[in-house]
């Protein structure tokens, strides 16, 4: 087994289909043992990138390594994959589907069967073990497919939109599956356009829009990208407020006299602003500071493109 520090490394990966560029110049390193979120609007190039990592499609240019190998095919038995569109063999029994995919990844027949039953029991599908896949609901089917992609206990798992089509409680289960895996040392890359999941479980994120990489880094780094916003109420002296250190601009909040949205300069501390307000006798009836969410970051970075893309 080759040693590696990064589960995946992409160097200037580009994929073109004729005149259309699906992915342009992506550089990326997914550290071993991390959970990496691929974020971006629909059609941004997430799935194409994941498929290139898996060597299902070949990049037009650039190079990559997966688990230290130059092609995922060489190490495919150590990789698990859940594709974006979910489908299973409808006529097969649930356990048999899981066992089949595990066997394709090199697990022995008996072992594959045992693991299938184990996983189904652990994730609450025991009673469906011997039923045909076509009897499962959509959410259950998706769970089964996730189990099928991890039954061979891979060290690296790629999940393409694992949350789509799941109800909130199953989304919760999905998050648990991911963190369970990660606790066992598995590196996970997943794509989503739902920011809240990424925010909760990702160590790092890659943001792609219009085929290009927009951001790559940790979530705090991402959040630092957008100015902090503080809402102050009961302000009678906006001029003084504007002169305080760390205040980049102020704007009267619509409809509420004395309420201002303050946009802070980079690295400024909202707590310091509060102290400065008291020191300068600015009376406040309310002080509101919210950490920016990943959603805010997303909208800030992708902006109008996201809206356009998501309606396409």
């Amino acid at each position: 087994m080759m040693d590696y520090t990064n589960a995946v490394e992409l160097h200037d990966i580009t994929k073109r289909y004729g005149d259309f560029t699906a992915v342009r110049d992506i550089n990326l390193a997914v550290p071993r043992g991390s959970i990496y979120g691929f974020l971006g609007p629909n059609g941004a190039g997430k799935t194409t990138t994941l498929r290139m990592i898996l060597d299902i499609i070949k990049p037009t240019s650039g190079s990559l390594s997966v688990l230290g190998a130059s092609s995922a095919m060489e190490v495919r038995q150590r990789i698990g994959y859940l594709p974006e569109e979910k489908g299973l063999y409808k006529k097969m029994k649930t356990w048999a589907v899981i066992a089949y995919f595990a066997r394709l990844k090199g697990v022995g027949a008996r072992e594959a069967k045992n693991r299938a039953y184990e996983l189904l029991e652990r994730y609450g599908l025991k009673e469906f073990s011997d039923k045909k896949v076509e009897t499962l609901s959509k959410g259950m089917g998706q769970k089964v497919q996730v189990l099928a992609s991890i039954a061979h206990q891979p060290e690296f798992v790629i999940l393409d939109e694992p949350f789509s089509g799941l109800d909130p409680s199953n989304q919760q289960v999905m998050e648990e599956v991911i963190s369970d895996l990660n606790k066992g040392g598995t590196t996970i890359v997943f794509s989503t356009h739902v920011m809240s999941h990424a925010e909760r479980i990702c160590d790092r994120i890659l943001l792609i829009a219009k085929a290009e990489m927009v951001f790559d880094g940790t979530i705090p780094q991402a959040k630092a990208l957008i100015p902090k916003m503080v809402n102050l109420s009961g302000v009678h002296d906006p001029a003084t407020l504007r002169s305080l250190p760390g205040v980049a601009s102020t704007e009267a909040a619509a409809g509420l006299p004395g309420s201002y949205d303050v946009c802070m300069t980079e690295n400024a501390d909202p707590q310091q602003l509060l102290r400065d307000c008291f020191r300068n006798d600015i009376e406040l009836t309310a002080f509101n500071y919210h950490e920016p969410t990943l959603h805010d970051v997303f909208l800030h970075l992708v902006g109008e493109d996201a809206k356009v893309a998501s309606f396409r």
């Binding site: 994959y81 489908g87 063999y89 497919q145 992609s149």
Partner: peptide
């Protein structure tokens, strides 16, 4: 297999 995208899982395994 194509229409329900099982083929992708297969392609990642074989």
């Amino acid at each position: 297999e194509k229409s329900n995208r099982i083929i992708e899982v297969l392609l990642s395994s074989a």
